[in-house]
């Protein structure tokens, strides 16, 4: 599954920073459509499966505050 981050709301740098900061937990692939950054999460730790995407999204959003 790919997470979608609206380009008008999320900065690419925030999404990339989130990927970097979470890189010890999973691998990521970033691509984009016309309106969205698309983040594919690869090798997500099974024990974190339920919360990983949500926590990742929150983290990316928190980086927008700065």
């Amino acid at each position: 599954m790919k997470l979608q981050f609206n380009k008008k709301i999320y900065l690419k740098s925030a999404v990339q920073k989130a990927m970097k900061d979470y890189s010890h937990l999973a691998n990521f692939d970033l691509s984009q459509s016309k309106d969205y950054f698309l983040v594919e999460i690869i090798n997500m730790p099974p024990e974190l499966k339920d919360v990983f995407e949500d926590e990742f999204s929150n983290y990316a959003l928190s980086l927008m505050k700065k």
């Binding site: 609206n6 008008k8 709301i9 999320y10 949500d54 926590e55 999204s57 929150n58 959003l61 928190s62 927008m64 505050k65």
Partner: peptide, 24 residues
């Protein structure tokens, strides 16, 4: 949108927040 970021920030420890739409 800046105010929405600010309010969202306060909620990060209680909820998962996803934003979409058009800031205009």
């Amino acid at each position: 949108i800046e105010a929405i970021y600010g309010a969202a920030y306060v909620f990060i420890d209680r909820a998962y927040i996803f934003l979409d739409g058009d800031p205009q």
